[in-house]
Amino acid sequence: MTVPTFESLKLGDDIPALKVPPVSRHTLALYCGASGDHNPIHVDLDYAKSAGLDDVIAHGMLSAGYLARMLTDWVPQSAIRSINNRFTAMTHIGDSVTCTGKVVEKFEKGNEKLVRLEMQAHTPEAQTIIAEAVIALE
């Protein structure tokens, strides 16, 4: 990993995107067990239908995990100061999830040089998470 420097980044720069294979029922079963989020709406079709949905839906936090993975593929995790995720649409079975981010602010606080990123996760149909992260760089 070549870590970007504060000086090297410009407003509007894109960070390397992350594209994840289509979400399968297996993906959701693994995340259900691994995360401890056992809400049946993500893995039990009968339950999802009883709640008025056509099918199970992905955990929002699965895509938030992908957004965080885009960051840890780009900088060491110790550089991440905060990540805010707002869930805006559902992710369905078969959707491929793409994560993107760009630099929207450079600032200094305390002794740290920080960049603010606007990020999003989206499927072919919809933007599913609007997110923001603050990253400390040398």
Binding site: I41, A51, R81, S82
Partner: peptide, 17 residues
């Protein structure tokens, strides 16, 4: 009930590993 619940936001602030 769980069926009425949606996750709206999850915000993280980090101070250490």
């Amino acid at each position: 009930t769980l069926g009425k619940l949606l996750h709206g936001e999850e915000n993280f602030t980090y101070h250490g590993p």
